[in-house]
Write a protein that binds this DNA or RNA. Sequence first.
DNA 1: TTGCTCCTCACGTCACGTGAGGTGGC
DNA 2: TTGCTCCTCACGTCACGTGAGGTGGC
Lengths: 347, 347
Amino acid sequence: MRMTIGAFARAARLSAKALRLYDELGLLRPATVDERSGYRYYDGSQLERARLIAWLRRLGMPLARITRICELPAGASGAEIAAYWREVTAETESRGRLAAFLVDYLSGRGHVMSGTPMGVRYAARADAGPVRTTNEDAAYAGGRLWAVADGARDGDGDRASAAAVEAMRTLETREIAAGDLLNVLTEAVADADRAVGSTAGGVTTLTALLWTGPELGLVHIGDTRAYLLRDGELHQITHDHTQVQSLLDEGRLTPEEAESHPDRAMLTRALTGDGAAADVSVLTAVAGDRYLLCSDGLSTAVSVAELGTTLRHAASPDAAVAELISLAHAAGAPDNIACVVADIVPV
Amino acid sequence: MRMTIGAFARAARLSAKALRLYDELGLLRPATVDERSGYRYYDGSQLERARLIAWLRRLGMPLARITRICELPAGASGAEIAAYWREVTAETESRGRLAAFLVDYLSGRGHVMSGTPMGVRYAARADAGPVRTTNEDAAYAGGRLWAVADGARDGDGDRASAAAVEAMRTLETREIAAGDLLNVLTEAVADADRAVGSTAGGVTTLTALLWTGPELGLVHIGDTRAYLLRDGELHQITHDHTQVQSLLDEGRLTPEEAESHPDRAMLTRALTGDGAAADVSVLTAVAGDRYLLCSDGLSTAVSVAELGTTLRHAASPDAAVAELISLAHAAGAPDNIACVVADIVPV
DNA sequence: TTGCTCCTCACGTCACGTGAGGTGGC
DNA sequence: TTGCTCCTCACGTCACGTGAGGTGGC
């Protein structure tokens, strides 16, 4: 069935202008072109391809990628489209995190109290545990930066976690302009990710806090965690990047099922060296706050209730870290444990 | 603090080229411009605005909209950004539905069986129920189209549901090219939405099936439902667009809590006359399939188990419709009921 | 013959990136 | 004085939309 460009455009729901462009690019050539007049004639059998192109354009796919997909057999092209859409979703999610942060930041602005000047006290420990002889966990606490990282057991995990924490340590001395905290943290994570990439295939989680006055920057990727004890109540302030947490979020798993899930440790995000998608946010600290950063070696061995009790009663960060690690040992924790406790105190 | 364009660009994480454009557009003017050399000088206090612009650009917001947001006070600008992001999310979701459909379609292509030629048998009824005297529900069944619609009780609901179904009826006679079913359905929903818009503020749900050979187009928006009985098993093939369903999906509600939720009828999507976001998909019918379309008047009064039993045992679509409606009456259903049953039969 | 459709330029949109070629400031 | 930075064009990118001005086909 011979169709003019106009008829074909209407049937395929594309503009004539677009069809002329696709002809020029070689993406969709007319069946015949009249030599004298230059009129393009399409065949009805070309409609299927034209409609696929129209759909993919509506998805926002660039023409270069559409060209590649059109070369593929039907089964493979479906997989390619699914892959494209996963990319779009991932990118939208990462922009969504930025949007959420911005909204928070703009609504909270102006609330900054002059308040009492505050200082910090802190303690850190990375423990190989009673069972393992190697330590893939890293912990660090300094005047401004507190961090834990948990390297994957297979491969170069110990070096990956150490490299990530080491990269973050440049933040200890870096000057940070007001309002630039989020940018600085994002850059630091990118640096840490590159540092991880330079190990031989190492993978690690990272959870870190950066103290800059009442503002406290939080960076998080993987299943290490940050908790805040404020006014006697313990809050988990990070969200695990694990398969199990995703299933929980979607309501496809109950908390009880999650605890005994065989793939409990399967991460959905981590520092791998090829582009980090960490959560980055900014909190406002209050004198009296006590922060806990820890690897899953602690959070799976010790219940939230016990974490809370210990943090409430420990006299100092040092004491808290020591007690938490002996609690984990008492529970028979087979895994490495990284643990940092930091207090915000009036000065 | 006076800064050159280069220093300011580095601090704000924008390019010098971008800053020159923003100057020209009036979005971000330099504090001073040297008359002789044309050099731009910025003040440190302008960094906050520059950083906000940089963040919004990273979100993908057009400069025109950024300009409007920069005029707003901090609180209002947060709300505006949240509104923008909701738009982005809604648009991405609608593209995501298209992507999912495309992937399905391309993986399923080639599976089309030559098989036995198939015909259809169908019955429809819209019942005012024993309690109500008005009927906001509409039901229709013809040789190709089967549809139910449930108008909102306040306002022009009866006319809205009738208008939506009436608009869809043009599909009964419309010629549909192979592979064009999705486009045709999308257009028909847009027409139905416009028809609803021409009633005085009416709002309605719509669930419809269009029979075109082994392919069966499905259109769905709101809390009317479609079920499929195949091989003795009943499947719900639509997903309610209600608040309660969203809470269920997010795992914030158990199925038991959902049943007694006070806002059970609160819709998240419907035909309102200002742009429809209906789910559109294509199924492949099999001889022996029995389809049920119904309004919530039936699905809330009669359990899924009873629906299944009735559909399994009824000898004909007519008998099934009659039995389902008397079951609903027996359960004391106070609401209107729209109900369509259609069979795919070998000929 | 009259519309309608088709053709090819060519410019506009959007928000820049990336030179080219020249000058100002320390 | 030597680099470095700044300036203004100007073109390229992406996928078209929208004319202008002219011609082909029934």
